[in-house]
């Protein structure tokens, strides 16, 4: 059988609505989402950049031509050239290599924050929504208190308290990101709270934890994923802002925000030092936004 034949068979299998298994149904759904993602050029562009970011982060040592930490003061502030594509920084380090490794830092921060925030936000929101009553009141009150601060200011205060460093920055950012997730999870939970299958599960004697995990999580997941994707860009920007104020990653770690900030000192002699990481932040954060926007169109057509 020819290659294209294989693909078209696969396509037909995926697109067919005569499901022969639950697995096929699941694949069908994912495939349709994929097709609409490809059909939306902006969202697809975002997806492509994010994918590229992941590839770069994973294969950073293979892509970077230089050691991102190797200093050579005699080579400081060299303009972009064939040897150093994006020039060198104030310590003579290769900016291209640092940019590549910086992708790791950026990804590390966003993933870590997301991993911390998603379960916390979900548990608080879903518990509030599911149990209702005073639990709801107390949890939502706490959520609102955190929400009443602009996010950067809150992150700033916390990282000042925790001390500079990338782990502390992650915690500080996480503290500002969970409340909207919790609100969303609560709102979603409320819509399912009195659905027949939840009542049925309750009658069968399932515990709160089990109901939340087995029934509520799968239903809330899509909208929370969209929200988290959209949040990625604000996580990146907050991290960059903290790095700019010297509260994020500490040397010699390559982090785009800190790179852009320390490059400002050499703005007039070495424009590339601040321009290059700035464009990187802009690109990645735009990509996450485009992707998130696209995902929302796909999963939640009402607002499309």
């Amino acid at each position: 059988m020819s290659r294209s034949g294989t693909f078209s068979n696969l396509h037909n299998w995926l697109i067919s609505e005569d499901f022969s298994s639950a697995n096929q149904a699941r694949c069908h759904k994912a495939y349709l989402a994929w097709l609409s993602l490809v059909a939306n050029p902006l969202a697809f562009a975002g997806f492509a950049v994010v994918a590229l970011l992941i590839v770069i982060a994973v294969f950073a040592p293979l892509i970077a031509s230089h050691d991102p930490y190797a200093q050579d003061l005699m080579m400081a502030l060299q303009a972009p050239s064939a040897a150093h594509w994006f020039g060198t920084d104030e310590f003579g380090r290769d900016v291209f290599a640092r940019l590549i490794y910086g992708a790791r830092t950026t990804l590390y921060i966003t993933i870590l924050v997301t991993v911390i925030v998603a379960p916390i936000g979900f548990v608080i929101g879903a518990t509030a929504g599911y149990l209702g009553g005073w639990v709801d009141v107390v949890l939502m009150r706490i959520t609102d208190i955190f929400l009443s601060f602009p996010s950067l200011v809150l992150a700033l205060a916390f990282s000042a308290a925790l001390g500079p460093g990338i782990e502390n920055a992650v915690i500080a950012i996480a503290l500002t990101v969970w409340p909207p997730i919790a609100r969303l999870a609560r709102a979603e939970t409320l819509t399912f709270r009195h659905a027949d299958f939840v009542i049925a599960a309750e009658l069968q004697g399932a515990g709160t934890g089990r109901i939340l995990l087995r029934h509520i999580v799968p239903l809330c997941a899509p909208s929370i994923v969209v929200r988290l994707t959209l949040n990625m860009s604000s996580i990146i920007l907050t991290a960059a802002g903290l790095g700019f104020l010297g509260l994020g990653a500490q040397p010699p770690m390559a982090e785009w925000g800190a790179m852009a900030a320390s490059g400002r000192q050499y703005l007039l002699d070495a424009w590339w030092l601040t321009t290059v990481p700035g464009i990187a932040i802009l690109t990645v954060s735009l990509a996450f936004n485009l992707l998130g926007d696209g995902l929302r169109d796909i999963m939640d057509p009402r607002n499309g």
Partner: peptide, 20 residues
């Protein structure tokens, strides 16, 4: 795109470039 760009630009960086 114009809107999302506004969401995605590191504002301190844009300020720096504008001054430059």
């Amino acid at each position: 795109v114009v809107g999302l760009l506004g969401y995605s630009t590191p504002i301190f960086w844009l300020g720096t470039i504008v001054i430059l």
